[in-house]
């Protein structure tokens, strides 16, 4: 997977490149709008991460040029502005997603993966990790052959973690995906929800599948991940 990063702020660019490379992506970083436009038009990328404010050519112009050239490469905008107008403008011009600085890197990673997964083959109906088997069709969970009853939201949470196994999911992403709460809560409600899920499907079993990544979020992974 090849990602183009167009970001003029040196530190941000450097850490985006490092973070994404370490997450297994091939990345190109340019600091100038003109270079970004050129690369976006001439090279084949799976995703472009665009800063709005850029020297010479701004992010909006770049995306307009790309779309006019008939390229459907997913574009994720990064910006320090958070005016509704900016957001609407970005999406109208054909951006696929939008992140406001400052953002959590785990959030960016999760969004990048979502965009890259878009349009890919459907996930299987039965997902298995270690001895845990989740039947999405019949909405049944078994671990070590034992049937475990989950509430609707617990099931959705486990499904999300399973579908994106190996990815660290930030609390804000979990809140927005499972409960449609698109803001940060002052409370530790996600922690409690994950703890309750673990009590049912992880606490009495080995190996532990859901791990807490401090300061980042939660990840579900088997031993072989």
């Amino acid at each position: 997977m090849r990602i183009l990063i167009v970001e003029d702020e040196p530190k941000t660019g450097k850490y985006l490149k490092q973070g994404l490379s370490e997450a297994g992506f091939v990345t190109d970083l340019v600091r100038d709008g003109l270079d970004g436009k050129h690369l976006a038009l001439t090279e084949a990328y799976d995703l472009i991460i665009l800063d709005v404010m850029l020297p010479n050519v701004n992010g909006w112009e770049i995306i307009q040029t790309i779309r006019r050239a008939g390229k459907n490469t997913p574009v994720l905008f990064l910006t320090a502005r958070d005016g509704i107008d900016d957001r609407v403008k970005g999406l109208e011009l054909g951006a696929d997603d939008y992140l406001i600085k400052p953002f959590a890197f785990s959030e960016l990673l999760a969004r990048v993966r979502t965009l890259l997964r878009r349009g890919k083959v459907r996930d299987p109906d039965i997902v298995q990790v270690a001895d845990l088997v989740l039947d999405l069709q019949r909405r049944k969970l078994t671990r070590g052959g034992k049937r475990i009853e989950l509430t609707g939201k617990e099931f959705a949470l486990l499904e999300l973690l399973l579908r994106r196994r190996g990815e660290v999911l930030p609390r804000s992403l979990i809140a927005s995906q499972i409960w449609d709460m698109n803001f940060d809560s002052d409370t530790n409600v996600i922690e409690v929800a994950v703890r309750r899920l673990r009590a049912k499907m992880d606490d009495h079993f080995e190996p532990k599948l859901i791990r807490t990544v401090r300061g980042m979020g939660y990840v579900l992974m088997g031993l072989d991940d």
Binding site: I84, K153, A175, N188, R195
Partner: peptide, 23 residues
């Protein structure tokens, strides 16, 4: 400037109650 649309308050509250249920 709020982008206005009809909102069912009871539904919103119910959703929030559900969200905070673990807590």
């Amino acid at each position: 400037i709020p982008h206005r649309e009809p909102i069912n308050l009871a539904k919103e509250v119910a959703q929030l109650i559900e969200f905070y249920e673990p807590l």
